[in-house]
Design a protein around this nucleic acid. Structure first.
Lengths: 204, 204
DNA sequence: GATGTAACTAACAACAATGTCAATAGAGCG
DNA sequence: CGCTCTATTGACATTGTTGTTAGTTACATC
């Protein structure tokens, strides 16, 4: 019997980082932060944990890169939703759906939970631009300059984002408790949005 | 010089559990789940980690007890808010404030984040009763039986709870991004609630 | 084909967290 | 005071994770 030499695969640094981050994200979403250890990720990919340290410097380096990657995806998803808004003639429900989808994709809920627990808010910074882009998109799309002030537009986005984050985090169990179906959250928010933007007429 | 014997303190089991859980909660809120280890908590309290195992069975037992304790507090805070609602003549803003306060106290935001990441939703069960109590309180307080269906009342609570959870979790950084002050979230929700409960008149 | 770079591995060291167990010592009770 | 019960300790074993280092091998380039 011949000794079967395992052929060693050599990736480019970028390939390696992408593979590792994808695997780490899957582990985070499936099993929480404790399940994304160097050894576990390395085993999944058929490499050694020393190699992960080679690419990311340390375990903390990997975690940081993972946060950055997920936040970037969330930010891009928001930008894409905004771009969609600016082109088609969507009703308010379309807008809400786009934002909720952006938060739902890529596990933004668990990402936010992780960031909050870590207390490391600096990683959220890229979201700032995306969120403010959302304010402008809503202004151009729905806002009546005579009735909706900039401050109000901002609080409209605050309202939407809070709900979308909440839904991504604890939407399913909470809806179950209240006997509400899967679309309930976004329908509620969509139904409220027109009233909210109209409110300017009445002073306040 | 005489050898100073360290006097060993002996607590009742209940005393011990309460002290430990308070300390563990403080650690969770300050440093996240990774900072609540047997040794760290024991050191804070001047005891040995073996003693924690004696009282809680295992590290997992301590975590589970901590979750239970925090969920119970959240549930009690909600119940108290409901009781307050039923007695005084509060405006919608009072109602919203009570619920937001309930979620804010005791670190409900980080609690939710922790539970979601652990994926262990069974611990949320006590919240179910509290949330449904909230539905009934709103029905008795604000709901017009002719215009607001049970389903709508439920989705009103869904809407409030999502927002309150979202605010507890990522309210501060999100409000900072949007240049909104501390009261913004609850004001928005309070301002929307009347419109929402009126919606029944128009069919939908 | 020879060579250099660096992706990758294997083995080991260091450390932290959990858990076990026999022994110690508070506190109530006769 | 003596006795019992158990909260509490101290020392140890175990396991899992991170990090280091010397060496191996894939692959591009000349």
């Amino acid at each position: 019997m011949s000794i079967e030499r395992v052929r060693r695969r050599r990736r480019t640094p970028e390939e390696a980082r992408l593979e590792v981050l994808a695997c780490a994200r899957a582990r985070l979403l499936a099993g929480g932060p404790d399940s994304v250890t160097l050894k576990a990720v390395a085993d999944d990919l058929g490499m050694t944990h020393a190699n992960l340290i080679h690419h990311f410097g340390s375990a903390e380096g990997l975690q940081s890169a993972l946060m950055g990657s997920m936040v970037a995806d969330l930010s891009n998803a928001l930008d894409a939703a905004i771009a969609r808004l600016r082109t088609d003639e969507g009703a308010p429900l379309e807008l809400i759906n786009a934002v909720f989808d952006a938060f739902a994709e890529g596990g933004a809920g668990k990402l936010a939970a992780w960031i909050v627990l870590k207390g490391d808010l600096t990683h959220l910074e890229p979201v700032r631009a995306a969120v403010n882009g959302l304010v402008e998109a809503i202004r151009d799309k729905l806002g009546d300059p005579l009735t909706a002030s900039p401050k109000q537009l901002s609080s409209a986005v605050l309202f939407i984002a809070l709900s979308a984050f909440g839904e991504a985090l604890i939407g399913p169990p909470l809806r179950d408790m209240l006997d509400q179906d899967e679309e309930a959250s976004r329908q509620v928010v969509a139904g409220l949005l027109p009233y909210f933007l109209l409110k300017a007429e009445r002073g306040e």
